[in-house]
Structures are given as C-alpha cells and as structure tokens.
C-alpha cells in the first residue's frame, strides 16, 4: 500500500490518525527500520507538531513512566525527551550518571538491572560507547530508546533532521544532502547517512581525510575533501560539531585552519543551491565549524530542528508505548 506523502502544510492528521503498528520493542537505530517504517515515524512526528505547538498535553502515555538515563551530558536532548514525554502525559524521571566516579560497564548492566526492577515503561539512554544501548536493551523488559551511543547511532536526531528537510522540500528522495565535519566520530552522521540512503536521497560527506572513517564510501553516495566541490548543487548542508580536542594537532592542526577549509561561511555556502538549508545538530561551535552570521541567517533551520526534535520524540514514545501495544 503506497503511503500518502504529507505536504509541509498538512498538519491535520491527528496523533490518533492511522499509522502502521510499530513492530519494534526498542528504537536502537535507524538501521533497524525499513523505509516504510521511517516514513511512518516521520508522518507520526508531523502529526505531533500541532500538539506540541499548542502546548497541549495528550493523555496517551498517562500512567507510564519514562526514565532518561544519560551517561553523557546532553542538556538539549535530555530536555527534548523530557518535554516530549510530559506532553504525552508520562511521568518522566531524569537520571544523570556521572561516569567519572563509576566504572562504566558495571554501571551500565547493574543500572539496567536495577532500573528494570522498578518497572519503567521506557528508558531513554545516551552512552559514550557504541553498542551500549543495545546491550542495555537486552537486560530490561521495557522499551529502550537510543538517545546516542558512542559513534554509532542517534536515531531521533536523524528522524528530526528528515522531518525538517521534508517540511521544506516536501520530499527526501532525490535531494542532495551534504554532511560536513567530523564524520569519523559522529553518530549523527551515521544515522543520517543510513536514513537518507534508505529514503533515496543523494548523500555526500565532506571532511578532511583525518576525520573520514575507513569505508565511508560504502555509507555515502559521494565523498569530498574539498568543501566547495562537495557543496556544489547541495539542497541541504548539515554541519557537525568539531570537538575541540580533535583540533589540537592530533587530527586537525588548528581551529583556524579547520575554519579556513571546512567552516561554513557565506562564500562556501554560495556553492550550494540558492535555497539550500543549513542545519546543525547542536551545540554549535560558532566560528569553528560555522560562521555565526550563517547560523543565524535566512537559510538556517537550526532552531526549527530543535522544535522538530520534540515532535519526533513524542512520535517515537507514542509509537513504542502508545495504545495498541498494550
């Protein structure tokens, strides 16, 4: 059955509208999803936007308990998941785990077992090690949502990016999306490459070779080390955060050299299509990977991404915990 392609203005479908039953217990990564399921989640998120904008609270998850378990600090993602849960009526508990004072792995399995005994309905996990969220999901009986694991996946980020893009172009297939920056260490890049690839968008990665992982050409349609060439004809420019410690001479000689060749400024952006969207998963390093004027400029949809984040997380929570499941 062919699914209807929602228009950017189409926000009439309510959260109770007809969606596919979500057949996964967890959301661990985009790689586990079929293209149809990806579209379905984006549709569900689209339908959540009016709810989110109206600051309404739906009763869908009333009486359910959601635990945000963050082994890595992330104010914005944690807040986004918290608001999403609360808008759906769930009881949300934030647990910040200070990794510094505890042995990482022990904490993970032990914490999973402990939390499981408290009978939560969902655990939202961020962890510094790739595969950690999957490991935790094997130790609990409730739904687990990956809020970022190491350099592996960050599925809700890719979904919110896709939703943002679709709202502007009305589609994902056939678009040229350039992802620029620290590809090697980025879970955002991986999840986006998998999602956009599944949606038949044309994906490009742009980075200095020291920030390109081996075999990246198998994940992206095209690989560029020259940013201007990589941006040519791009519909979307996704910038990634550069961790300061990587620009201290180990992989990148200096911030100013990085900015010169890979920072997004007006001159480089001019190589992309005229209406190209500028995106960033945040938090931004202004003046490192992006010119502040571009970040706040007319092509930037960075703030919209944050807004879409809440809608996507509401949709994911609803898909995993909502009515039909129980």
């Amino acid at each position: 059955m062919a699914r209807r392609q929602p228009e950017p203005s189409d926000t009439k479908t309510g959260p109770t509208g007809s969606f596919l039953p979500f057949r996964h217990r967890h959301l661990l990564g985009i790689a586990q999803l079929s293209p149809v399921e990806i579209v379905d989640l984006i549709d569900r998120a689209e339908a959540m936007i009016p709810v989110s904008r109206a600051r309404k609270t739906l009763p869908g998850l009333a009486g359910k308990t959601q635990i945000n378990l963050f082994f890595e600090n992330s104010t914005r993602t944690q807040a986004s998941f918290e608001i999403a849960g609360k808008r759906l009526g769930a009881t949300v508990l934030n647990m910040a785990v200070r990794t510094s004072s505890l042995a990482k792995g022990e904490t993970l399995v032990d914490t999973a077992t402990t939390l499981n005994a408290m009978q939560p309905d969902a655990i939202v996990v961020r962890h510094g090690s790739s595969g950690a969220v999957e490991l935790l999901s094997q130790k609990v009986e409730c739904a687990v949502i990956n809020a970022g694991d190491g350099s592996h996946e960050h599925p809700t980020q890719a979904l919110l990016d896709a939703l943002t893009i679709r709202r502007h172009f009305g589609r994902l297939n056939g678009l040229t999306v350039a992802i620029c920056g620290d590809i090697a260490n980025s879970r955002v890049a991986r999840s986006n490459l998998v999602l956009l690839g599944a949606m038949q968008a044309r994906t490009r990665v742009i980075a200095p070779k020291t920030l390109l992982p081996r075999g990246v050409e198998q994940m992206a349609s095209e690989v560029f080390t020259d940013m201007r060439k990589g941006l040519k004809g791009a519909d979307v420019v996704m910038m990634l955060r550069l961790q300061n410690e990587r620009a201290s001479g180990k992989l990148i000689p200096s911030v100013r050299e990085y900015y010169r060749f890979y920072g997004l400024d007006a001159e480089k952006l001019a190589h992309a299509n005229a209406n190209a969207l500028v995106m960033h998963p945040g938090p931004m390093n202004r003046g490192v990977e992006i010119d502040p004027a571009i970040a706040d400029g007319p092509q930037s949809v960075i703030t919209e991404q944050v807004e879409m984040g809440v809608a996507v997380r509401m949709a994911v929570l609803d898909a995993l915990l909502g009515g039909e499941k129980e």
Binding site: S130, D149, E153, G215, M219
Partner: peptide, 15 residues
C-alpha cells in the same frame, strides 16, 4: 578490524 564494518558500527578500527 578497521574497515567499513567498524565504521558502520561506530567502533574504532585497528588497521
């Protein structure tokens, strides 16, 4: 092992 598999899994590779 360093390569596409490690990259896909987000694991650091040993060349």
């Amino acid at each position: 092992n360093a390569g596409p598999l490690a990259t896909f899994r987000g694991l650091k590779g040993i060349p």
